[in-house]
Computed example of a mutant assay.
Amino acid sequence: MENTVLHKAATRGHANHGWLDSYHTFSFANYHNPERMHFGVLRVLNDDRVEAGMGFGTHPHDNMEIISIPLEGDLEHQDSMGNTAVIKKGDIQVMSAGTGISHSEYNRNKDKLTKFLQIWVFPNKRNVAPRYDQITLNEADRHNKLQQILSPNADDEGVWIHQDAWFHMGKFDNGVSTDYTIKKEGNGVYAFVLEGDFTINGISLNRRDGLGVWDTKKLDITAASENAEILLMEVPMALRQF
Rank of each mutant, 00 (worst) to 15 (best):
Q134L: 06
D164A: 13
D156G: 09
V121P: 11
I182S: 00
Y132R: 01
G158D: 12
E139K: 14
H168N: 13
V128M: 14
D179A: 08
H162K: 13
P130H: 07
K171P: 04
G175V: 10
D155G: 02
F116H: 10
Y132Q: 05
S177D: 08
G175Q: 10
R131K: 13
V128Y: 02
Q163D: 10
Q163C: 06
F122S: 12
L137S: 09
L117P: 08
K171R: 12
F122Q: 09
Y132D: 02
A165F: 02
D155N: 13
V176E: 12
Q148L: 03
T136S: 15
N144C: 08
R131P: 02
T178M: 03
W120F: 09
R131M: 09
N124S: 14
D173V: 08
W160G: 05
Y132T: 03
W166K: 10
D179R: 10
N138W: 07
N144P: 11
G158Y: 05
F172S: 07
H143S: 10
A129C: 00
D156F: 03
W160Q: 09
M169E: 15
D164E: 14
K125L: 10
I161G: 00
G170K: 07
E157W: 00
M169L: 11
V159Q: 11
I161D: 07
G175A: 08
N153C: 00
W120D: 03
N138K: 13
I161A: 07
D155E: 14
P130V: 07
T181F: 02
L137R: 10
N174F: 02
E157A: 15
N127W: 04
K115H: 14
N124G: 09
L146Q: 05
D155P: 00
M169V: 15
Y180K: 09
D173E: 14
A154N: 09
V128C: 08
S177T: 13
W120K: 04
S151I: 05
S151W: 06
R142G: 11
A154R: 14
V128L: 15
V121M: 08
Q163W: 01
Q163M: 07
L146Y: 07
V121L: 15
D156V: 01
K125Y: 06
Q148M: 12
A154D: 09
Q163P: 01
F172C: 10
I135D: 06
L146P: 02
R126F: 14
A140L: 10
N138L: 03
I161F: 03
E139H: 01
H168P: 06
K115F: 01
I149N: 03
V159S: 14
P152S: 01
A154I: 13
D179N: 15
A140D: 15
